[in-house]
Design a protein around this nucleic acid. Structure first.
Length: 414
RNA sequence: GUGGCUGUAGCUCAGUCGGUUAGAGCGCUAGAUUGUGGAUCUAGAGGUCGUGGGUUCAAUUCCCAUCAGCCACCCCA
């Protein structure tokens, strides 16, 4: 048991969990399609530069959480810790600028070297959308509405609250950042160790500190709204107006900050308190500087990512496994035609499970365990009559049906 | 990365104040029922008590380390 265990923070997805994940991804994909997004996939690893350049040299992800290695050709590559950078890279290298506005949906594994907890894994899975090439607040609104809709369709919207903030444009944020550093520097000695770190790495993060001492200092810190220029204010106002018009409720959270450098203007997060400390279900925002930062033409973008494991945990029980129909041969000859019969029925679109071995009792037991809808029993007797006995497992009723009309019969009783 | 809790059968958990063959329920296998599942009864399989080391006549039990899970911090999805 201890000898052969999965790598820390990774999980096997057995049928039940896979069904739970698929419910989330299928639902999200359907919703995203409604909003005009198309599904894409980018590679699971990229050159490390893709992430280093975009996520910020000081972000936790880059400094301590990336799975980075040198491949046999000497290239330094990294297992993707998130998918926005990969999409942006693809946008540039595939020349997708001519397709703007580009709307994509993705789903897949991400990797972060973190200390595992429930809802926090080293290999985890995300769904997400990106809307690239639209600077107008309509894009922010549409993207947020899409996220809200995914949660609603999953039936977890009641457990979530939408938190909203603006990070302003670069000009506003730089001014605010400077003011914050000035302010907190006065109290540097009283700040928690974490916050002293943050003072140099990401001063905005101090605002989010849970440390009590920090909280007192934070109470009198400069407020971002005082530093927002008109453009930033207008953008944020328009986003709020749009959400109001759509009836999407949100709470303003001035302390909502993004860990990644490329975000600006709208930042939002659908959070829950039903998962302990792992509260973020869907998080995203606007990243107008990202594509330019990577070397493409300046192109605005907005998007979000959602944690599949977290959404699946909240979503309750996995959907039931599909109920197949069992083909149960009894005897040598029937055994031979059972394979053929199974294939025929499968071609007709039925989900067929063949009872491989044992006496009839054993095979029926197995069929029962698979929760089959019906058992198609075929023995010497039936063969002689070119028929099969169909037993409906829920009622226990059974009926002999000519082989030729079996598909039609089963279709009626499906 | 920091602090804490936990680790006994496939699953959920009892138990041993250190002492001979470690238990239950569920599940699994077989039989009662040689062409009929689910219910019932009977029998059976399954554990180096997470791993490694130490203390001891003796360790699943005590100590240390390690691995893993969980909780909080951190970070976020």
């Amino acid at each position: 048991m201890a000898q052969l265990q999965p790598v820390r923070g990774t999980h096997d997805l057995l049928p039940e969990q896979t069904r739970a994940h698929r419910r989330v991804t299928d639902c999200a994909r359907d919703v995203a399609l409604c909003y005009g997004f198309e599904e894409v996939s980018t590679p699971i690893f990229e050159f490390s530069q893709v992430f280093k350049r975009t996520l910020g040299d000081t972000s936790d992800i880059v400094t301590k959480e990336m799975y980075t290695f040198t491949d046999k050709g000497g290239d330094e590559v990294t297992l993707r810790p998130e998918n926005t950078a990969g999409i942006a890279r693809s946008f540039i290298s595939e020349g997708l600028a001519q397709l703007t506005p580009l709307k994509v949906f993705y789903n897949g594994p991400m990797f972060r070297y973190e200390r595992p907890q429930k809802g926090r894994l080293r290999q985890f899975h995300q769904i997400g959308v990106e809307l690239i090439g639209v600077a107008q607040p309509q894009a922010d609104i549409e993207v947020i509405a899409c996220g809200a809709r995914v949660l609603a369709e999953l039936g977890v919207i009641e457990l979530a609250t939408l938190e909203l903030n603006t990070l302003g444009d670069t000009e506003s944020r730089t001014a605010y950042r400077t003011a914050l550093v000035d302010y907190f520097s006065q109290y540097e000695a009283d700040l928690s160790a974490d916050s002293k770190e943050r003072l140099v790495r990401n001063p905005l993060r101090i605002l989010d500190s849970k440390n009590e001492g920090d909280r007192k200092i934070i109470a009198d810190a400069p407020v971002f709204t005082d530093f927002l220029n008109t453009l930033s204010q207008d953008h944020f106002a328009a986003v709020r107006e749009g959400l109001d018009a759509l009836g999407i409720v949100y709470t303003l959270n001035p302390r909502l900050v993004r860990g990644l450098d490329y975000y600006c203007h709208t930042a939002f997060e659908f959070t829950t308190n039903a998962l302990g400390a792992q509260g973020a279900l869907i998080a995203g925002g606007r990243y107008d500087g990202l594509i330019g930062m990577m070397g493409g033409n300046e192109t605005p973008g907005v998007g979000w990512a959602g944690g599949i494991e977290r959404l699946a945990l909240l979503g309750g029980d996995a959907p039931a496994a599909p109920r197949p129909i069992a083909v149960v041969p009894v005897g040598e000859e029937p055994q031979k035609i059972a394979l053929e019969l199974s294939e025929t029925l499968r071609r007709e679109g039925f989900r067929i499970d063949l009872a491989y071995s044992g006496n009839l009792s054993r095979r029926m037991k197995r069929a029962n365990r698979l929760n089959v809808l019906a058992a198609v029993i075929i023995g010497e007797d039936e063969m002689a009559r070119n028929a099969a006995t169909v037993r409906h497992m829920d009622t226990g009723e059974q009926e002999e049906v000519p082989l030729a009309s079996l598909p039609e019969y089963l279709a009626r009783h499906r």
